[in-house]
Write a protein that binds this DNA or RNA. Structure first.
Lengths: 66, 66
DNA sequence: TATATTTGTAAATGAAACTTTACTTTTAAT
DNA sequence: ATTAAAAGTAAAGTTTCATTTACAAATATA
């Protein structure tokens, strides 16, 4: 699943560490999600959406893998 | 996190087993999500959204738990 | 009321998300 | 060219999502 976190972060001048602390996860978790190592949980996806004032669909692009 | 899966299923006359098979998970997973035992993964949430032709936000209601 | 279907639940297991610690590489600013 | 900050990565561990098997309870239908 692709995501626009890196761009959204850049637009708001946030570091991975800042985004991590604002969403209550570790910096490594943010890095792993940005690098496509794994997908966030649904609750974490909602926290990203709330923080950036976007829908989940505007942040994450599903690639219908099933 | 609340969800409207049970109602959406009822509207389309689907059993838990049918919804499970259409989204590629077990019946027990559907049951557990409906009963609030746990939240679906983000990819599974996208599959529900695609199947019901709704956004994730229209199916799942976040209760800002963090 | 008997029977079939659906739903609820539980235990054990596996897979994926996420953590902590720690270190290296890259980028930006002196 | 140094230095500091940010990003990348890795290993080991915990928690959460999801599986299989199995059975009980509820709902529908004959």
């Amino acid at each position: 699943m692709k995501n626009r976190l890196k761009v959204l972060r850049a637009e708001r001048d946030l570091t991975q560490a800042q985004l991590a602390s604002e969403t209550g996860v570790s910096r490594q978790t943010i890095n792993a999600i940005e690098k496509g190592k794994f997908d966030p949980s649904l609750p974490l996806a909602f926290r990203f959406a709330r923080l950036f004032d976007l829908t989940i669909e505007e942040i994450f692009e599903d690639e219908q893998e099933v």
